[in-house]
């Protein structure tokens, strides 16, 4: 369950006032809106990467407003993918498991099964700079899901992919969500790919942008 209660955000000239939302059920939920309305800021506030000026963020029914990003246990796929360039694909995929002190064996097993399922087993030894844009996206998605989070936030997912790859990845993702009962918040300005399977859809508009810097 993802909840926001009268949350206000400020970042430079950008302001978002008193946003409340609630996504209760497992499944895919969409937050849509034009570029620049603050979709990314909302996701970052949920993940704990951006401080909230006022209001509360609740996950699984608990207030997590002041809690560290790590303790929120959210699988986060950022818009810019941001793979760790100095780590191999295997290390990228296993990063969250290792950070959460999984045993090396279970981390390894998880990475193997996840990469097999994603169809990237042959890429495990490579480094991010040796991957295509689509492959990077695939690895980043795997990295976000690796530690088996029950809440996942996706920022503009699948936007960088081309037709066929995108369709198969979306299908894979929908299956995964069903199977693992994950609550997914996806923000996007191109909702058409996920609209059919989305449980709820919220449109974010009317941002308050204060004049000047």
């Amino acid at each position: 369950m993802i909840e926001m209660d009268n949350v206000s955000l400020k970042r430079g000239s950008f302001r978002l006032d008193k946003l409340s939302l609630c996504f209760g059920q497992p499944g895919i939920h969409l937050l849509i809106g034009e570029t620049g309305v603050g979709k990314t800021s909302v996701v970052e506030a949920i993940c704990g990467l951006q401080p909230v000026a006022s209001g509360q963020v609740k996950l699984r029914g608990e207030n997590v407003t002041g809690v560290s990003p790590a303790a929120r246990s959210i699988g986060y796929l950022p818009q810019d993918v941001a793979l760790f360039d100095h780590l191999s694909v295997r290390e990228n995929l296993g990063f969250a498991c290792a950070a959460r002190k999984w045993s090396p064996a279970s981390t390894r097993e998880r990475v193997n099964s996840l990469s097999a399922s994603l169809g990237i087993s042959d890429l495990l030894q490579r480094f991010p700079e040796q991957l295509s844009g689509g492959q990077k996206h695939c690895v980043a998605l795997g990295r976000a899901l690796a530690f088996d989070p029950d809440i996942v936030c996706l920022d503009e997912p699948f936007a960088a992919l081309d037709g066929a790859t995108r369709d198969s990845m979306i299908q894979w993702f929908i299956n995964y969500v069903d199977e693992h009962e994950v609550t997914v918040l996806a923000v996007t300005h191109q909702p058409q790919w996920l609209q059919a399977v989305a449980k709820t859809q919220l449109k974010l508009d009317n941002p308050v942008v204060s004049p000047g810097t």
Binding site: G48, L49, S68, A70, R72, Y76, F84, R100, A144
Partner: peptide
Amino acid sequence: RQEELAQSLG
């Protein structure tokens, strides 16, 4: 970004 992401990953 990458630092933030690592924090969010645990």
